[in-house]
């Protein structure tokens, strides 16, 4: 027990006390300015290193994935051809829809507004499934709102400070939201799967699902607008003996390297 008489033990106690004060400040929501300072301080170094590392990684990544890219390109070309045909059909339907709406006097559904936010910390340590963004109460963010990237759902706001917020990533096992299959309207629950991806659960066994079908938010939660893309149906991972049908969801979002997101105001 000799160490309790040392100078370092006194310093240790002072720092623990200081940490306790900061914990109290955090519970009162007073650590906002300190958080911003800490998160912004390394930004120039992060920007420079990303500028250097990103092209290097892309270059080697492209070489490594050359075979996959060629195959993917072929598949995408076929898909584009199919989609072009769909587009023509949809355009025709849209015009018809517009005309019918005018006839019936329907009010046009208002599109949700987006708040652009920069990701300040990108979960570099893999310890938590959340990121900090530079938008907060002053930008109109509220707890429960969702954020999108590349048009796909990336997470839910779980903590709102004055100018920063914490976003729980959609791949987190603690994340869940109501979802619906765009084609059939069947509702289920989209949730994270321990940081590795997303799954669509709670679908009735009778529900028809097919690989590639789009899954969107169902709009049951008042904070989450209807129709936000969650992902595409991947493979079915449940058996017919289970109570609910379950499948993986494929999303093009790189959750490890998010730079910008849009918070969705309902």
């Amino acid at each position: 027990m000799r160490f309790i008489y040392t100078k370092q033990f006194i310093i240790f106690c002072i720092l623990v006390l200081l940490a306790a004060v900061l914990v109290f400040m955090e519970t009162q929501g007073w650590t906002g300015p300190l958080k911003r300072t800490v998160l912004y301080a390394p930004r120039p170094i992060i920007a420079v290193s990303q500028k250097i590392v990103s092209p290097v990684k892309d270059f080697f990544g492209t070489i490594y994935r050359l075979n996959d890219i060629a195959r993917e390109n072929l598949e995408l070309e076929q898909e584009v051809a199919g989609l072009k045909q769909n587009l023509v059909d949809l355009e025709k339907q849209r015009e018809e829809n517009e005309a019918l709406r005018q006839e019936l006097g329907f009010v046009k559904a208002s599109a949700y507004s987006l708040v652009p936010c920069t990701v300040l910390s990108q979960n570099p340590f893999g310890l938590t499934d959340s990121v900090v963004i530079n938008c907060g109460q002053s930008q109109g963010l509220k707890e429960g709102m969702v954020a999108i990237s590349r048009g796909y759902l990336v997470g839910k706001v779980v903590f709102v400070g004055n100018k920063t917020s914490t976003l729980l990533l959609a791949v987190s096992s603690k994340f869940s939201t109501d979802a619906a299959i765009s084609k059939t309207g069947r509702t289920g629950v989209a949730s994270g799967s321990f940081g590795s991806g997303l799954i669509l659960d709670q679908l009735s066994q009778e529900a028809e699902i097919e690989n590639g079908w789009l899954v969107v938010t169902a709009g049951i939660d008042e904070n989450i607008p209807k129709g936000i893309l969650v992902g595409e149906i991947g493979e079915i991972i449940s058996t017919s003996s289970e109570l609910f049908k379950k499948s993986t969801l494929v999303t093009p979002v790189d959750f490890d390297n998010l730079e910008f997101v849009f918070a969705v105001e309902p």
């Binding site: 370092q8 240790f12 979960n123 340590f125």
Partner: peptide, 23 residues
Amino acid sequence: DDYLFLAFISGVFLDFFTGAFFG
């Protein structure tokens, strides 16, 4: 004894960067 200062500051950075509760 400088490690204590470094531990404290590193902890603060880690707390804020992981989005975890302070401490």
